[in-house]
Structures are given as structure tokens and as C-alpha cells.
């Protein structure tokens, strides 16, 4: 078993072996989560703090449940409403919190690189729960686990990531992870929502849904991030739905057994047809949520092991 990282800041710095280690461990937590007694003690005596500088319901809940099931003491800090408003800098907040000796720090921040910066100032394991448009590693890992369980493998698959790539940290982490495990990644969306230089990332870029989905094993839809846009990326939501919204007609261009994924929260009728999202034969969206808890348990377990080892060495 190999897992060298001391923080989980992004997929970029993880090796393929570390990713597989984490996914394998997560499998065992899927079983635990389905059992009657959902308790383990691997984080017993440890303190987990969730700092969300950006509103979140599902990710925060997922991390909280993951920590509690592993026996950690979990605290949620709603940062949007606290000292940041009083002008405290990110580093001061980190230092203050560090003085309370947390063991695991789960951080979401609206600015790219902020979690990285914070990790340099604390003596605990930091997990990136999403920073700006940069990375969202646990999302990519839970997507990977979902795909692996559904397709029976996680290599040599054709995977289309569709929609608002430009504003998506989920897309960046997924491009990196799926590339590291040797899959063919396609990006599909209007050119205004493609980040610059994206073709240099080892992906194929399409602006037509039907071309992009042709022969795909996995169709990953992204949320149209209206809150990150400063206007004018698409002419209207109805045109976007017409050209890029996933419905059964467009999905028919993918392989017959292609699965449909979405990181949530969904804008039904904007990027995905509501009925398709609920179709249990095609959509694995609920599986993604389930895998999320297992993957986060595995990530915290592995980081806690490395943290204990480094503390014993010191």
C-alpha cells in the first residue's frame, strides 16, 4: 500500500499508485457504510475541522459524516459568516485554528491556491474541499470510484466531460485523474466555456455534443456555474439547453451502456434533462453521493496514518 502525501491538495501531485491505493481502501468503506453498525475508530481521538469559506451543503455533510463514522470529533466552522468579515486574513485564521491542535482540516475557499497557502502554515493534514477554479480532488476520486464500480475498470475508457469547463474545479481534477490512469478524455462545451490552452492538457475538445459523445463510455455533466460568471458566456439558458443540455436524444450518440454522471447540485432543464437524471438505468448520480462518503473516509484514514507516523518520527 502506497500513499505518500501529507495533504490532499489536488490530484496534480498524486501518483497513479496513490490514487489506486485510496480507491481500494474506499471500497472497504462502501461496505462499512452499508452495514448496520457504521462505526470505525481509525480517527479516534482526532479532531477534524471543516472550514468552508464558500457555501456548501453536500460536500460539507459528506465530510462531516465521513469523519464521524471514523470516530473523529468533527467541528464545522461557517467561515462566510465569521472573522473574515471582521477583516482577519486567511493566514491569521489558519494560525488561530492551528493553535487549537486540529488533526484534519477540511477547507473550501473561493480563491484558487488558498488551500495550498493555508496548508503551509499549519501542523495538520489539510484536505482541499475545492479551491476557486483550481481543484476538487475528493470529487474526482469519488467520480473515479463510481466509474470503476460501474464499468469494472478505470483505464482505456472514453469519458466526455461536458459543459462549463472554464469555471469548474471538478473538471480540472477529473482531467488530471483520468489522464493519469490512461483514459481518453474529451471536453465538450461552447468555446466560451473552454479555458485557454486546454488543448495542451492531453484532451480532445469538441463544441458539438453529438460529436463529443459519440462512442463514449461515460458522460459527465457539469453544473453551469452562474455564480462564477461575470456575464455573457452564453446567449441564454434555453439555447444552452438546446445545444448542450443532456437528453435521451443526445445521449443516444454515446455507447448503449454509457453512464451519466453529475457532481451536483443540478440545474434541471439547463444542463441535464430531469427525467434522464432520475433514470436508474443510466444515471449514477446517487451512487456518486454514496461513493463521496467512502472516498472521504479513505482519504482521511490515509492522511491520519501518515500524520501519526510523522508525529512519532518527530
Amino acid at each position: 500500500m502506497t500513499f505518500r502525501a501529507n495533504h490532499l491538495l489536488g490530484i496534480e501531485t498524486l501518483g497513479p499508485d496513490e490514487i489506486v491505493t485510496l480507491l481500494d481502501l474506499a471500497e472497504s468503506y462502501v461496505d462499512l457504510n452499508r452495514a448496520g453498525n457504521k462505526h470505525a475508530e481509525v480517527l479516534g481521538g482526532m479532531t477534524q475541522v471543516n472550514m468552508f469559506f464558500e457555501a456548501s451543503t453536500r460536500t460539507q455533510a459528506s465530510f462531516e459524516i465521513a469523519g464521524k463514522r471514523l470516530g473523529a470529533d468533527v467541528m464545522n466552522m461557517a467561515m462566510a459568516a465569521s472573522s473574515i468579515k471582521k477583516g482577519e486574513t486567511l493566514i491569521d485564521t489558519a494560525m488561530t485554528l492551528n493553535a487549537m491542535h486540529p488533526d484534519l482540516l477540511v477547507v473550501r475557499h473561493p480563491h484558487s491556491g488558498a488551500v495550498d497557502l493555508l496548508s503551509q502554515k499549519v501542523n495538520c493534514a489539510v484536505l482541499n474541499a475545492g479551491d476557486g477554479r483550481h481543484e476538487h480532488p475528493t470529487q474526482a476520486l469519488l467520480d473515479a470510484l463510481t466509474i470503476r464500480r460501474s464499468k469494472g475498470r478505470l483505464h482505456r475508457l472514453n469519458i466526455a466531460i461536458c459543459g462549463d469547463i472554464a469555471h469548474s474545479r471538478v473538471a480540472r481534477s477529473n482531467i488530471l485523474l483520468l489522464g493519469k490512469l490512461e483514459n481518453r478524455v474529451r471536453l465538450v462545451g461552447p468555446t466560451t466555456l473552454m479555458p485557454s490552452g486546454v488543448a495542451d492538457l492531453g484532451v480532445e475538445v469538441y463544441d458539438d455534443m453529438r460529436d463529443g459523445l459519440a462512442g463514449c463510455d461515460v458522460v459527465m455533466m457539469l453544473r453551469l456555474q452562474k455564480e462564477r460568471m461575470d456575464g455573457g458566456f452564453i446567449p441564454s439558458e434555453r439555447e444552452y439547453y438546446h445545444r448542450y443540455g443532456l437528453d435521451t436524444e443526445k445521449l443516444a450518440h454515446a455507447k448503449e451502456d454509457a453512464i451519466v454522471m453529475h457532481p451536483g447540485p443540478m440545474n434541471r432543464g439547463v444542463e441535464i434533462d430531469g427525467l434522464l437524471a432520475d433514470d436508474i438505468n443510466r444515471s449514477v448520480i446517487q451512487d456518486q453521493v454514496e461513493m463521496g462518503v467512502a472516498v472521504r473516509m479513505a482519504a482521511m484514514d490515509l492522511l491520519a496514518q501518515n500524520l501519526r507516523a510523522s508525529r512519532e518520527a518527530a
Binding site: 479551491d131 485557454s196 492538457l201
Partner: peptide
Amino acid sequence: KGAAVTSGKFATLRGLPG
């Protein structure tokens, strides 16, 4: 407006406005 780096592959990888 709002840019922090030059647009391109690097900006995209770092998730920074370019």
C-alpha cells in the same frame, strides 16, 4: 479586468483568471 496571470495552459491548470 480581474486577471491575475496570462491566459493559457498555466492559468488553466492553476485555475487562475487570465
